[in-house]
């Protein structure tokens, strides 16, 4: 019994911790050694892992598919772009996360009353509303685009992004194991039953929604430094939200492995099609999404599980 428990602790706690740290070291170390081109690839990979894992804390666990995570990313980037000259970066990155989390907390209460597919299209509509409202604000301020001078170099950004990816991965894994995560899963399986069995569903959904926006806000702040250029339409693009959802479905969002697999798939595909037209890449992505929804709704991670059994 005791060894059973130890083995379980090993499998659930120690192993994921070690694997995540090893993955992070590999991504950062490998990126550093392989030269500038691969540093950018590693940065992109880390960015998507961080975004999809965070999304999965809310959407993977509760089953409420959010198509609005671009807003969290965008708010972080916006804060960085507008305040870069006045505040140090180490203040702005966490502040970007806090801003995104706060925004999510505020909208969560009305939005999370809506269930199912209406929730999905609502988050999407809300994201577009924020985008166009901010665009209007920027036009009124006379700032159609902003430039950032003197941003840190790629290797520094890579280190931060890898740290964010590792943090998001561990957060996703440990939230999934926690009592909080068990409650979220119960909501996904049957919200009415969960509520009747004592799960405080509204509080949990709101908290998970806010929590899942924090790291994307920080990712957005770092990416604003990376592109050194800020434009509302680009940063709040629905493509970001859609890519997150597509990758989560292809990778599987039932555990913390899925998002890593999904991000690897995405970055691998885009590397494979480097030089080909971006349309071809998107067509393949769309076809993959359709195929996975039809034939493997639990994603690559689900396929791995099935093979093992």
């Amino acid at each position: 019994m005791a060894t059973d428990r130890n083995r379980q602790a090993m499998r659930r706690i120690l192993l994921p911790l070690l694997l995540t740290l090893a993955g992070a070291a590999l991504l950062y170390g490998g990126g550093l050694r392989a030269g500038p081109y691969w540093q950018v690839v590693a940065l992109t990979l880390a960015m998507w892992i961080a975004l999809i894992q965070s999304w999965s804390i809310f959407s993977g666990l509760t089953g409420y598919v959010s198509l609005g995570h671009a807003v969290a990313y965008g708010l972080g980037a916006y804060l960085m772009a507008t305040q870069f000259r006045d505040y140090p970066v180490w203040v702005l990155i966490p502040a970007g996360g806090a801003l995104a989390g706060l925004f999510a907390l505020i909208v969560a209460i009305p939005v999370l009353r809506i269930r199912g597919p209406y929730f999905v299209i609502l988050t999407f509509g809300l994201a577009e509303l924020v985008k166009f409202a901010l665009l209007r604000l920027e036009t009124a301020l006379g700032a159609s685009s902003r430039l950032l001078f003197g941003a840190p170099g790629t290797t520094t950004l890579l280190a931060w992004m890898v740290a964010l990816a590792a943090a998001a991965t561990l957060l996703r894994h440990f939230v999934g194991l926690s009592r909080f995560g068990r409650g979220l899963i119960a909501i996904r399986e049957d919200e009415t039953a969960a509520e009747t069995l004592g799960v405080p569903v509204t509080r949990f959904k709101v908290l998970a929604f806010a929590l899942s926006a924090v790291i994307p806000g920080m990712v957005g702040a770092v990416m604003a430094l990376r592109s050194t250029y800020f434009e509302v339409l680009q940063v709040f693009s629905p493509t970001i939200s859609f890519t997150i959802v597509t990758m989560a479905i292809i990778g599987g969002s039932g555990d913390a492995r899925g998002p890593v697999l999904g991000a690897l798939f995405l970055v691998g595909l885009s590397e494979l099609l480097r030089g080909a037209s971006p349309q071809l890449y998107l067509i393949l992505l769309g076809l993959c999404l359709i195929a996975f929804v039809l034939f493997a709704p639990n994603g690559l991670s689900g396929l791995l599980d099935r093979r093992r059994k």
Binding site: V245, I290, V293
Partner: peptide
């Protein structure tokens, strides 16, 4: 119906991406 709605949303999203980009191509 809820599952059909959720899946159809994702499937049509895939269809939308494919149609738009095939047209652009």
């Amino acid at each position: 119906p809820a599952v059909i709605e959720a899946r159809s949303l994702l499937l049509f999203f895939g269809v939308s991406v494919v149609i738009q980009n095939v047209t652009a191509l």
